[in-house]
Amino acid sequence: MDLKGIGGIWPASLTPFDRAGTIDDAALHAHVAELAGTNGVRAVVVNGHAGETASLTRAERAHVIGAAKTATGGKAGVVAGIVADDTRGAVALARDAAQAGADALLLFPPALFAQGANARPEMASRFVAEVAQAAGLPIVLFQLSLTSGLGFSHEVLLRLCRENESIIAIKEGSDTPQAYEDNLAALRALDRQVTVLTTNNSWLMASLAYGGDGILSGIGSVASPILAEIFEAMARGDLDAARRANARLRPLCRAFYRAPHLDAHNRMKTALHLLGKLPNPDPRTPLLPIEAEERTAIAQALAGAGLMPGRAAAA
């Protein structure tokens, strides 16, 4: 599927495991199929942070891509996360993704980039170019938060887009309004289209007010219909409808995105379990299952979002 110029909702999927810690293929198929069949969803992202990719072997990552390709049934694209700390590892994963049928790659910067890669922009240039050449697939470049140290500077981000026509989209998570707005304006001024997908999870609606082509976020694993409501309402200029949908999203954001942040996607698994959509909510170690008190808080957030059966959304 050609994802160039495609916006809308791109949920980052979870990776279900059984009680033994093995990938649960039936649960994975059901999860991805539901996401792909949701109105407004244009692509499903696998093997990202939401999918606990750091806990997956190389073979398991390829397996997840192939399983997702089958589960989408052509209704949505499949985007494979590429998370590696060295270029050779990223190249190998990118080739695996192409062979498994991925439509595009979500390219994460190596962790060592946090130590000052913006001062050596040729590092990022070579990294992106080598991965792109190896896979021959379009790239969604992950712009992480500036506070993490992994976010590209404004200048480096634009350089990468100018140098690599394989970059078709940016997962924009700079996490500051000024940086997001500046990046958005500069990307719009390029001589070719680069899709901007916001992932600023504490202010998704606000970021869309600046502009943007869609949302790529792990919270879409639980709330893609709400994300689609917000995006579509903002696109047609219906601010009241966007606010109503955002009021439903807010309790979920507060429940998922809080300290300790390493549990964010673990909490989303618990949410799907509470909704009867995931047989086993447990992550792979060293992550630990969500405890009873927090499960109650997540259930309350689901009720506030109107997602719990028989429970109305909060006003």
Rank of each mutant, 00 (worst) to 15 (best):
G237S: 02
L157Y: 06
L160W: 05
E155C: 01
T198M: 06
E172T: 02
L249I: 00
N164T: 06
G212P: 07
G218L: 00
L227S: 04
F152M: 11
E181K: 14
L239M: 14
S125W: 01
S148P: 04
D191K: 13
I170W: 09
E130I: 02
G220K: 05
E232T: 15
Q133C: 07
L141A: 07
N164L: 10
F231D: 07
N164A: 11
A124Y: 01
Q133L: 12
D191T: 10
M234T: 14
A209F: 12
E181H: 13
C161Y: 00
S148N: 09
R159V: 01
L184S: 05
A186I: 00
E181I: 14
G211E: 08
D182S: 12
L216A: 13
L249W: 02
P251S: 07
G214Y: 06
A169Q: 05
V194W: 07
M205Q: 12
L150F: 09
E155F: 06
A135Y: 00
N164P: 03
A206T: 13
S148V: 06
N200H: 11
L239H: 14
Y180V: 10
L150M: 15
L190H: 08
A209P: 01
F152G: 01
A233G: 07
D175G: 06
V196D: 05
Q133R: 14
V140I: 15
V194A: 06
A206G: 14
A223R: 01
R188A: 14
A242R: 03
A189W: 04
D238W: 00
D191P: 02
L157P: 05
G214H: 01
F231R: 11
